[in-house]
Design a protein around this nucleic acid. Structure first.
Lengths: 224, 224
DNA sequence: CTGATTAACTCAAACGTTTGTTTTATTTAA
DNA sequence: TTAAATAAAACAAACGTTTGAGTTAATCAG
């Protein structure tokens, strides 16, 4: 074992995964380091050894998210930036872009297994900020929110620092995240027991036109 | 002290209020009964004496919510039921009703101090169901969701058991609750430090037209 | 190749605190 | 006098953390 830095070696990575799952499910205080060690198949002292303590493990989970997430975000930002000037005033094209963005986001958000592991932790940190929130916010939700605000500003034909654009973007995000956050409620309301791929598509079929209407864009016809 | 049942006597009521605040902020596991007793200005053993334990206190908080909430809900349901048949097909009237409902809900949700005390607990129970979720769900969020679905079904000219209506109602709720749940994020994005009454009105001014567009209704002009 | 050396890592046991709960005594008000 | 309520002390269990011995695998002189 020579190169130690940032190598995704067994126990250390297992503990971060365990933290992602358990902290995401139950929150920092509700998870014991014994539960974390068990889930990771590691010894109690491994948490002290690899991270220095429970709080430091939580921080490491955040750092791990910041490490694996931004590539996708970089790509989306680049894509949007180079398209933005061509889209001004073109409602149909804007609607098409919104459809692509929203359905991609929703499939990842609700369906993709790696993502579904991340999302609960992600949302929990936003709802109930930990002492590391600032660090986390700047790298992920802040950037995501900011990107979406730029899109909304484009549609509303205003600037991204317009508070109306920020609030409208926030409402837009709400329509999406409520399907993760309000999961227990929706499952009962719809009489479902889980989100199957077919149901995720069903949600997308309702939600994409909803988002388009929300921004006053023309509704893309559902093909099927 | 003769009549004991459901009398809002000092210590017992103080403990429920403390539970509402602390459980709502940090979740069940993260709150110690010592913190609860301190907040309530009560002795440690008072929790055992009045409720039987920490979990029983949590249950009592839920029961308290179920006790004080439904009157408003009953009123809203009655109001809607008797208006519903007159509103079929009348988009302008539907838009007006949505405006009334949404702005009332939002002012209570974000502004009213008694409500602001309740909401965090309410949302936490929905996001992270406790063993008492079923009991809670049926009395409050389920009814609220159901009522809103009936409104959405009216607007979409379909029935309340149509899954598209349920999903659309869910998305609608998302636009509202995200302003409570995503508070830390929005505050940073907008550069605010809290929700003042003026800012709540600012949110309403953006959100009501947004909700109306989402349902394909005509947008009520903002008067001011 | 061999065997001692060293660093990286794992493990079981124990530490002092804090946890929810129980017990026992005291105060309060009818 | 009596039941309701409060108060303080003590309980075992679980908590995050520390300790020191044990294991593993790479390093390198011989």
């Amino acid at each position: 074992m020579i190169a130690r830095t940032s190598e995704r070696s067994g126990t250390r990575a297992d503990l971060i995964d365990a933290g992602l799952d358990l902290f995401g499910q139950d929150g920092f205080a509700a998870v014991s380091i014994r539960a974390l060690a068990d889930r990771a198949g590691a010894n109690l002292a491994a948490i002290q050894y690899h991270f220095g303590g429970k709080d430091a493990l939580y921080r490491a989970v955040i750092d791990h998210l910041i490490e694996i997430f931004p590539p996708r975000l970089d790509f989306a930002e680049l894509l949007f930036t180079e398209q933005a000037h061509q889209l001004r005033g073109k409602a149909v094209a804007q609607a098409a872009l919104l459809k692509t963005m929203a359905s991609t986001l929703l499939r990842a958000f609700l369906g993709d297994s790696q993502m579904r592991r991340i999302v609960p932790f992600f949302l929990r940190e936003m709802i109930h900020p930990s002492p590391h929130f600032d660090h986390f916010y700047a790298a992920l939700p802040g950037r995501l929110h900011s990107l979406l605000t730029r899109f909304v500003a484009l549609v509303l034909d205003t600037t991204a620092d317009d508070e109306r654009a920020i609030l409208q973007a926030h409402a837009l995000i709400g329509q999406i995240v409520v399907f993760q956050i309000g999961r227990p409620v929706l499952l009962r309301r719809a009489g479902w027991d889980e989100y199957t791929p077919a149901r995720v598509e069903q949600i997308i079929d309702v939600l994409v036109p909803s988002l388009q209407r929300t921004l006053g864009l023309p509704v893309t016809e559902v093909t099927k």
